[in-house]
Amino acid sequence: MIETSPQLKKNSALTQASFEQLLACLGPDREAAASAYLELRQALFTYFALRGATSPEELTDETVDRVARRLSEGQIIFTANLKNYFYGVARNVWRETLVKANTVTQLPETPLPLSSGPTPHDVMVETLETAESEKRLGCLQKCLAQFSDEERELVLSYYRDSGGAKIEKRKALAQTLGLSPDSLRHKLARLRLKLGSCVRQCLKT
């Protein structure tokens, strides 16, 4: 998913040399390249997540790996914007993923009889959802604790109010931070992605 650390995450399948070569193509200096790389991974993650991938992180790694490999093999990439090339490769990766079937779901041929109240199955599903929800809360709490005080306060303050008060509060919040309302929304979107990444990891463990 989106990197939670400012450090660059290198796909383990890449050699250091090919990774460095990729970075060199992404920006004039290492700092700019690192920033472009992280942004690119965000775009790839978003693309695969919205397509419905179960594990967008793996597909992101695969895409980066392919482009880096081609660059290290000396392949010339004819595009004004390397990021567009990444998009093309991502489309291919997704298409290939789709043809690899690995699950099967057995569906009843006839619909189950309708019932007036919740079935025991409904109750079980609800109970499981409640348990998952409790676990998620614990993870959110743990992940928010890893945020800086400023980031955490920003996220939580965004969710505190409702109704008309919420709109006014958000305007005031943007003003306090010296941001436009849109910039604030985008900043929060990035923080949510960071939080989402952390929660996903936490739920897996």
Partner: peptide, 20 residues
């Protein structure tokens, strides 16, 4: 009749075929 749904939105890297 047994109905099976073979979806395409699947996790990459799993080589094992589903069993019907």
């Amino acid at each position: 009749v047994a109905t099976f749904f073979l979806p395409t939105q699947l996790r990459r890297g799993t080589v094992e075929a589903p069993t019907i």
